[in-house]
Design a protein around this nucleic acid. Structure first.
Lengths: 151, 151
DNA sequence: TTGCATTAGTTAATATATTAACAATTAATA
DNA sequence: TATTAATTGTTAATATATTAACTAATGCAA
């Protein structure tokens, strides 16, 4: 009887939370003709001069096969470019273009506004507990590595 | 400065939590040749003799356009069937077949096992706080309905 | 009863996710 | 150094998500 009510299971609650908050952000992205994934990539690029596809995949949580097409479309929109590494020819850096960088000043304030709105009804303590709980879920494996072996 | 670190933003934390726990479940679904979405539908059908597509969409959080194809494939696998309502010819009920029902006894124990594993490292209080926090996120709009108007 | 709005599902077009296989490059090792 | 293993991206096939438009059936009001 680990799961009684499906709708109260952790995965469904996580999905429902995302379902609740994402549309608010997507509304903004649409105004700039960005998809959510395109936004995530730009969001990361605004903090990195250049970044390899592998690391970009880690930071955006976008699987690498998806990344290929998304970056293609961002290039077509003239927001980023690809640059093959000289030191290791396997690696490819993604770089934001001028136009891609300019978006930050336009999009971030809007996004921060929504984010603040979402956060507002929470007490600082409640919010902290929520984040802590999520962090603990995200690190489930890392903590118990010593106890078990992955075959 | 609502969002400082992108990776610590609520949406990314929710995504990361899902990224951490879903593969554990998908591993089981694969053994039964089920996708995650197919599982969700069956999971709900095991608690309902029959259910309309609309309600199924609500409970599984699967958007209705996606539901069409997923149910098609479940029918092809002989796990569910479609039945048009007599009272309201617009509505369509989805029903689990014998074979679909039989899966419950095989899959649920495995899923419950993983779920327990995930829950284990949490204290009852921690877990409750996490669930409460997620619930609050999921009900952001509902609570403040009185204060604002949707145009 | 006709006409219009609403509801329940579906279709279509495009974007993304999932899994497996693959090519190119680099690292490691006999 | 020739081989093999590991790494970084990509391609391919299928499934799902997103948004808009659309059909069929129902509800409701003039």
């Amino acid at each position: 009887m680990a799961i009684q009510d499906f709708s109260q299971s952790l995965p469904m609650m996580l999905y429902r939370a995302l379902d609740e908050i994402l549309p608010k952000f997507r509304y903004i992205f649409n105004e700039f003709s960005l998809t959510e994934q395109q936004w995530r990539i730009l969001r990361v690029l605004w903090e990195h001069d250049r970044i390899t596809l592998g690391r970009l995949s880690d930071l955006t949580l976008i699987p690498s096969p998806s990344l290929v097409g998304i970056v293609d479309r961002l290039i077509k929109a003239n927001l980023v470019s690809r640059e093959r590494s000289d030191s290791d020819r396997r690696m490819i850096f993604v770089v934001a273009t001028q136009e891609g960088r300019k978006l930050e000043a336009k999009v971030m304030p809007r996004v921060n506004e929504i984010y603040k709105e979402i956060k507002e009804p929470f007490s600082k303590r409640q919010w902290g507990q929520l984040i802590d709980g999520l962090n603990q879920i995200s690190h489930l494996n890392k903590k118990t590595v010593a106890n078990e072996h992955k075959e």
